[in-house]
């Protein structure tokens, strides 16, 4: 099988003022690949995937996503964001719009689809994330798990080529984590390219093709899950896994 890289990071570095949040990050994500990124809090996981859709601009190195080299205010950035979906830890649904409007506003205003076409797609994805009956409610009327599934559907409605997830279950009550992960597993089964920052190791075992372990702004280890979970190459990853698997 020919591997087509969709995200290529070469020596990527990122500063916040004097603080170096990312150092020399090299990573390749191929089309259809599922990459799970883990690591201690503050290790730069969010910063890295936010660089992938230009929410943060990297300062050094090269970053190509979907064939385009990312640079601050590059003319193609908006086009790129349409093709790269993002799911946030805090859902970030639009509270003044109904669920259906949340899903169709991007396709209608950005992709210039007709309302009918956008609605048809939206209802299909609401079905897919198993909340078709909530279409006319407002986000505040939904549970956290439902809101996060809407956020996933909203990103999917743009028909992205890659989906980025930044700790999508960290803000959820424990009993709602499963319903969101189920939706993500099904999404993985459709062949979607996914980069997921998460500490849900059960999910990682199930879907990940590649595990990435970060610490202090660097990628410390990139391994297939079989190796990563049984015999991590780095001492740090081993300590980290012991810590989170204890609970």
């Amino acid at each position: 099988m020919v591997q087509t890289p969709i995200i290529i990071a070469e020596g990527v570095g990122k500063y916040f003022g004097d603080f170096k949040a990312l150092t020399d990050v090299d990573l390749i994500v191929n089309q259809g690949e599922r990459v799970v990124i883990c690591g201690p809090s503050g290790s730069g996981k969010s910063t890295l995937i936010r660089c992938f859709n230009g929410l943060e601009n990297h300062d050094t190195g090269r970053l190509c996503v979907d064939g385009m080299e990312l640079r601050e205010d590059a003319p193609g950035m908006r086009q790129l964001r349409q093709d790269v979906g993002m799911v946030f830890q805090q859902f970030n649904l639009f509270p003044h719009l109904t669920i259906l409007e949340n899903l169709i506003i991007g396709p209608m205003k950005v992709r210039k689809q007709s309302r009918a076409a956008a609605e048809a797609t939206a209802r299909k994805y609401l079905e897919r994330v198993r909340i078709p009956e909530q279409a006319d409610k407002r986000p505040a009327q939904l549970s956290g798990g439902q809101q996060q599934r809407v956020a996933i559907a909203r990103a999917l409605c743009m028909q992205p080529r890659v989906m980025l997830f930044d700790e999508p279950t960290s803000a959820l009550d424990p009993e709602m984590i499963g319903e969101v992960l189920d939706v993500m597993v099904e999404l993985a089964e459709t062949g979607m390219t996914m980069v997921v920052v998460t500490h849900e190791m059960g999910f990682a075992r199930k879907v990940a093709d590649t595990m990435v372990f970060m610490e202090a702004g660097r990628i410390v280890e990139v391994s297939p899950p079989e190796t990563f979970f049984t015999a991590p190459k780095s001492q740090r990853a081993r300590v980290f896994l012991d810590q989170i698997l204890e609970h």
Partner: peptide, 14 residues
């Protein structure tokens, strides 16, 4: 909230 800007940007809005 800042997250609203980010969500709008993430679906490609100007």
């Amino acid at each position: 909230a800042v997250g609203q800007w980010e969500a709008a940007a993430s679906i490609g809005m100007s």
